[in-house]
Amino acid sequence: MFNSINSVGGWFAANTVNILYAVAIILIAIWASNFIKKLIVGMGENYEKLDETLFHFLGSIARYAVLAFAGIAVLNRFGIETTSLIALIGAAGLAVGLALQGTLSNLAAGVMLLMFRPYKVGDFVQAADTFGKVDAITLFTTDMITFDNQHIIVPNASIWGAKITNHSHHNIRGVDMVASVAYGTDIKKAKASIAKVLKANKNVLADPAPFVEVETLAASSVDLLVRPFCEGEHYFDVKYSLPQAIYEQFQKDGIEIPFQQIVVHNAK
């Protein structure tokens, strides 16, 4: 027992300098890792256009990277071979990466979404066959609230690898709809009738001016493309209120609204 104590004491005596170096390295590494993390997180907090979630994640990675290098430096200080340890950690990391391939793809997509910000919380977005309001963006998923009040969680990989339509990107939106009239209708009169409806709607902007022109000569109707402009927050109000208002105005002005017709000719 005394021999063991003496050997341990001898080891500490022989490695006093190394122990002091190791303690210094660990203390400096802890301070440096915390400083670097705060610096990176502070970048995300100081600039409104940068996402804080991403910078918290990057700050944590940087912190653990500094601590890992400090641990390797301490082991080297005591003459412990770290090459095999690094190779073992690398192999373990590869195995974990393969096992979590789907999760890591969502993580990578989340980082890209937070960096390039094709949308932000509060935007109305159509992505991954889902249309709704963005409720939250995390490193792995995007939470969306649909118009029928469903909470849908979409993996980020499904969003980043497909088409993204951000309906809230521009403040002013064009609202496309079709107004059909019967053949033989005075088109100028139909346009004037539509103009009355657009002018009466408080959410329709005068500038840019609404666009109303014949788009298609269909089988039993003349289809006019109606495109008023409005602020983004009023998009759905305009989209779903104008068709009824145009229909009612057509009735008042005596403009015929077409319906599908089949003409049968009797053979003689």
Rank of each mutant, 00 (worst) to 15 (best):
M1S: 07
M1N: 10
N3S: 14
S4M: 05
S7E: 14
G9T: 04
G10N: 14
A14V: 02
V17S: 13
N18F: 09
L20T: 10
I25F: 07
I26T: 09
L27F: 09
L27W: 10
I28V: 15
A29I: 01
A29L: 02
A29C: 02
I30M: 14
W31K: 09
A32W: 03
K37D: 12
K38N: 13
V41L: 05
M43G: 02
E48Q: 09
K49C: 11
E52Q: 10
T53G: 06
T53W: 03
T53C: 06
L54F: 01
H56R: 14
F57L: 13
I61T: 08
I61L: 12
I61N: 13
A62R: 06
Y64P: 01
V66C: 07
V66L: 03
L67D: 05
A68R: 01
A68M: 09
F69S: 07
I72V: 11
V74G: 02
V74R: 00
L75V: 09
G79D: 10
T83D: 15
L85Q: 11
I89T: 12
I89F: 12
L94R: 08
L94A: 15
A95H: 10
V96I: 15
G97M: 14
Q101V: 12
T103C: 04
L104K: 03
N106L: 04
A108Y: 09
A109N: 09
V111E: 08
M115R: 14
D123R: 08
D123K: 10
F124Y: 15
Q126T: 07
A128L: 04
F131I: 10
G132V: 02
K133N: 08
V134Y: 01
I137Q: 00
T138F: 05
T142C: 06
M144F: 08
I145W: 06
I145T: 06
N149C: 02
H151G: 01
I152D: 00
V154N: 02
V154M: 01
V154C: 02
S158F: 07
I159G: 02
W160R: 03
G161H: 12
A162L: 05
H167Y: 13
H167N: 14
H169T: 08
R173F: 07
D176R: 12
D176Y: 07
M177I: 03
S180K: 12
S180E: 09
A182T: 00
K188F: 07
K189F: 01
A192R: 04
S193T: 07
S193A: 13
S193C: 08
I194T: 00
A195Q: 05
K196A: 04
L198K: 01
K199E: 11
N201A: 08
N203Y: 12
N203M: 10
D207K: 13
P208N: 06
V212F: 01
E213R: 10
L217Y: 09
L217T: 04
L217C: 01
A219P: 05
S221N: 02
V222Q: 00
D223P: 04
L225E: 04
V226I: 01
V226D: 02
R227V: 08
D237V: 10
V238M: 07
V238I: 08
K239M: 05
S241G: 06
Q244E: 12
A245N: 03
A245Y: 00
I246D: 03
E248G: 05
I255S: 00
F259Q: 10
I262S: 12
I262A: 15
N266R: 15
A267F: 15
K268I: 13
K268P: 13
K268H: 14
